[in-house]
Design a protein around this nucleic acid. Structure first.
Length: 562
DNA sequence: AAAGAATGTGTCC
DNA sequence: TGGACACCCTTCTT
């Protein structure tokens, strides 16, 4: 093993220490030797936490030569420098101070002290409204101006929720869809290609179809003319049309008729939406092309059109709910684009909405179709208040943690289809918070007109991230996909939903409570700790005061412990 | 309990 | 243009 070799390389006795002074870390930054040592002695790495961040290595086998290296240095796993460490301390994640803020991507502070973490509305300024006329106004000419209620109604977000859980997917959940008429049916797709139909009222009633697609189901829609039929777009390059009851499926289009011809030729279908008026399924691939399928003949119609940068993935499509001629697309070329489908030619988009990173989703607002909501991988939710207005820049950018991670389904902010003011959106959160000694990733309800975090929903048992979320079109129900599991959140039967107040709500699910996991020793000195005892009874009773104390806990900046 | 695998996007050359 | 490689809060299995 390494010791023999090393005894020749490092004949001296080296004792490395971390002191609290800045001096020591800067001195040691230039010293490469200890790093080599530590890399080789992998067996010791797991004991970091027991040594409270300090690593001790000894070479006891070298009797004759007696070179002993004792390293008491902390090594940051993020920047590989010494003197500090990044990672979880108990349920609290400590950022690497050498990197820009993980949340807002700005240098000079860490996520802990990021003003956007303390208040999501930080820096959100309503855009001035220039009512410049543009091409979209022309498209909308025959349409009456949509009615938007002048007074914003209260959101219906319950203070107490029940949670139904099911796990029938064998890979992570990638998309969810509620049935258009049956209030209790949820459709789910996963990375393996399976499609599930779940009656969440009778929790155990579910069907899983495993032979419709061979890999990722990226988007699903119900047929507008037949409630029992499901369209799905998959990375296997096909669109399927499936009978929900029987599972009998037909393929509307197959972009890989000759099978696997290498990764450069394999076409995958991502964005998909249905346009009832045009009897069309719009679908787009990973090379930038848009395809049309006529739902009457179930045949591809016309030629594929390049709608995003050639070779880049088009991940989202959305037809305007009021104006069927308008289509919104988004993709990996950092753009969301608005199209008039009557003149679909490469480069003919009505508007290109620029983003700094990949755009995971772009949606017209569900009622008026006038607003646009996008989720991009630069940790920002963007809102355009009116497609009639100035589209050069978004009306608002809300910093929110929903980074890209290759192991997670991309996050998408989704409108609440029931909110007449078209300002409520739901999106899962990537970074965790320390709740009672457990790291949890809440699902955030955000008022996109102000940037305020209206509510955050979580369950002590759901320790995984929930990137996939869908609000019910009629009921006060939220469906979430978290890893391989599905969750349904809804108000407790005996609990009256309260109207929106100024303060944020933390909604803790009580339905599936288990015993808490062990608490980390580091949590004892946190400000959070004082809330722990008050917090716990909340889970059993309906004590709103405790919920408030939880809110306070959330807003208290954490102390970095060293 | 620790290690390994799965595997998308950005950046660099 | 494309290949190599890095990569910050994953999650599950062995």
């Amino acid at each position: 093993m390494a010791p023999t070799t090393r005894s020749f390389s490092f004949p001296r006795v080296i004792i490395e220490k971390d002191t609290d002074s800045e001096q020591s870390s800067s001195e040691e930054d230039d010293d490469e030797e200890p790093l080599h040592d530590e890399d080789e002695d992998e067996g010791e790495n797991g004991k970091d936490s027991e040594n409270d961040g300090q690593r001790i290595e000894e070479e006891s086998n070298n009797k004759g030569k007696a070179p002993i290296t004792i390293s008491l240095k902390k090594v940051c796993k993020v920047c590989k420098r010494t003197g500090h460490e990044a990672g979880f301390k108990g349920a609290t994640y400590i950022d690497c101070p050498m990197k820009p803020c993980f949340l807002c991507k700005m240098p000079g502070h860490t996520t802990m002290s990021c003003p956007h973490r303390v208040a999501t509305e930080f820096g959100v300024i309503p855009a001035s409204h220039k009512n410049t006329r543009n091409a979209l106004l022309y498209v909308f000419e025959r349409q009456f101006k949509p009615h938007i209620p002048p007074i914003k109604p209260a959101y219906v977000i319950p203070d107490q929720v029940n949670c139904a859980v099911i796990r029938y997917h064998s890979r992570r959940v990638t998309c969810l869809e509620f049935h258009p008429t049956n209030n209790r049916l949820l459709l789910s797709g996963d990375k393996k290609g399976q499609v599930g139909v779940w009656d969440y009222d009778k929790v155990h009633e579910k069907v899983v179809y495993g032979n419709i697609h061979s890999c990722i189901v990226n988007n699903m829609r119900f047929s507008p003319t037949n409630d029992g039929m499901i369209y799905a777009a998959s990375s296997d390059g096909t669109i399927s049309c499936t009978d929900m009851e029987t599972g009998i499926s037909s393929s509307l289009m197959n972009l890989n008729p000759d099978g696997w011809q290498g990764p450069n030729n394999w076409r995958m279908l991502y964005g998909m939406d249905i346009n009832p008026e045009k009897h069309a399924v719009f679908v787009a691939d990973n090379f930038g092309f848009l395809y049309l399928v006529d739902t009457r003949s179930n045949n591809k119609s016309g030629q594929a059109v390049l709608i995003h940068k050639k070779g880049s993935k088009v991940v989202g499509l959305h037809s305007n709910p009021l104006q069927p001629d308008l289509l919104l697309s988004c993709g990996n070329d950092h753009f969301a684009r608005i199209w008039d489908i009557r003149q679909l030619v490469a480069g003919s988009s009505l508007h290109d909405l620029a983003h700094r990173r990949v755009v995971n989703s772009a949606y017209f607002s569900p009622i008026s179709g006038c607003k646009i909501l996008t989720t991009a991988q630069d940790n920002r939710i963007r809102v355009w208040d009116s497609i009639f207005g100035n589209l050069d820049s978004p009306s608002r950018e809300i910093v929110h943690s929903h980074d890209f991670n290759r192991h997670l389904t991309p996050f998408r902010a989704e409108w609440d289809p029931k909110d007449p003011s078209e300002s409520l959106a739901v999106i899962g959160r990537y970074i965790s918070e320390n709740y009672n000694g457990i790291a949890l990733h809440p699902i955030d309800f955000i008022d996109v007109s102000t940037g305020q975090l209206v509510a955050e929903v979580m369950d002590l048992n759901i320790t995984t991230i929930s990137p996939v979320n869908k609000l019910h079109p009629r009921d006060d129900v939220l469906a979430s996909g978290s890893s391989r599991s599905l969750f349904i959140w809804r108000p407790k039967d005996d609990h009256e939903p309260t109207e929106q107040k100024d303060e944020r709500k933390i909604v803790i699910c009580t339905g599936t409570e288990k015993k808490r996991k062990h608490k980390s020793k580091n949590d004892g000195s946190d400000d959070d700790d004082s809330d722990v005892d008050k917090f716990t009874p909340t889970l059993k009773g309906k004590n709103l005061k405790s919920t408030k104390s939880a809110t306070k806990m959330r807003n208290t900046p954490r102390k970095m412990k060293r």
